[in-house]
Amino acid sequence: MVDKWTAEDVPDQRGRVAVVTGANTGIGFETAKVLAARGAAVVLAVRDTAKGERAAGRITAAAPSADVTVRHLDLTSLDSVRAAADQLRAGLPRIDLLINNAGVMYTPKSTTADGFELQLGTNHLGHFALTGLLLDRMLTVEGSRVVTVSSLAHDLRAAIDLNDLQWERRSYSRVGAYGQSKLANLQFTYELQRRLAEKSPTVAVAAHPGLASTELIRNSVFVVRTFVRAFNPLISQPADRGALPTLRAATDPDVRGGEYYGPRGLRELRGYPVRVRSNRLSHDEFLQRGLWAASEELTGVTFPV
């Protein structure tokens, strides 16, 4: 595999269709911009369609021939997820790439429209439901991939408590809840890959951006925001570099299902994208299956695999 993989290594994407959640800003925007510039038809699935239209305008300004559309998707509402999936299914006979990128981070304790803890509901359950509702548009498409964006935080005070996924019995921790949601992203990827392995050319892959300069940090506690801002040039990387692990997971021909990509630098904070390892809990098959069953029950969405 290429050691210093960059956006210039993204293969020609003409003829491919990509759906990118949270694509109006940050990692999602940079991912969508590169895919569109390489010829993919890209759908920006976003909560704020006005911001999405502005993002689409920036993409087409840089690449006038880019094929970019905007669709409304609010991952905090299963009704919105279902409506978005219905609209996408009606307009897209095939999907080559589904990039589950959107997310929230370190939010105060609150719930989604369906009563789910906000970080789990947005980062995992919303994407779980969206993937299940769109997967049949991918299962016969050679080279199709579901790429889910996780985080280094999957190993930071993170655990999957199947008896208290919604933090109703524990004292709420912003950090712990975010870590749980990012650990869930990985467990979802690995369980989905196991289900896909012998039945479809579609594969499931995960990625993380390291420490990237995006809007996500806005909900962090004061000391974290202060530290990151003070040392930002030394420990983080811009959003376009943070998008590279996602782009590699989505487009590198050498990628295999069940792999995980992140920066290769010190503690995976920054650097060129390479295959990396996730923690032991992420590979716990009992927890993977338990989370899957709980996610199906909570969302009411079952998968065609």
Rank of each mutant, 00 (worst) to 15 (best):
M1H: 13
D3L: 15
D3G: 08
T6M: 13
A7H: 10
E8F: 14
D9G: 12
V10W: 07
G15T: 02
R16N: 15
V17Q: 08
V17R: 11
A18I: 11
G28Q: 00
F29L: 07
E30D: 04
K33R: 15
A36P: 00
A36H: 01
A37H: 00
R38V: 01
A41I: 02
V43D: 05
R47C: 07
K51F: 14
I59W: 05
A61Q: 06
A61V: 02
S65P: 00
A66C: 01
A66M: 01
V68P: 00
T69Y: 09
T69L: 06
V70S: 02
R71G: 07
D74A: 11
D74W: 04
T76S: 15
A85G: 02
R89H: 11
D96R: 04
D96C: 11
V104K: 08
V104R: 11
M105T: 12
A113I: 08
D114N: 06
F116A: 05
L118H: 12
L120Q: 04
G126N: 08
L130Y: 04
L130N: 04
L130T: 06
M138G: 12
M138T: 09
T140V: 11
E142F: 14
E142W: 15
G143T: 06
V146N: 03
V147E: 05
T148W: 05
V149T: 11
V149L: 14
L152Y: 02
R157Y: 12
A158F: 05
L162P: 05
N163W: 09
L165W: 09
W167P: 04
R169K: 14
R170A: 15
V175N: 05
V175P: 00
A184W: 01
N185C: 10
F188I: 00
Y190N: 00
Q193P: 02
R194Y: 06
A206E: 05
H208W: 09
A212E: 00
A212P: 01
T214V: 05
E215R: 12
R218V: 10
R218N: 10
S220G: 12
T226W: 12
F227G: 13
V228W: 14
A230L: 13
N232S: 13
R241I: 13
L244I: 06
T251E: 07
D252Y: 11
G262D: 05
E268Y: 00
E268F: 00
L269C: 13
Y272E: 06
R275W: 14
R277S: 14
S278M: 09
N279F: 13
N279D: 14
D284S: 07
D284P: 02
E285P: 01
E285G: 03
L287C: 05
R289Q: 10
W292K: 00
W292C: 00
A294Q: 07
E296D: 03
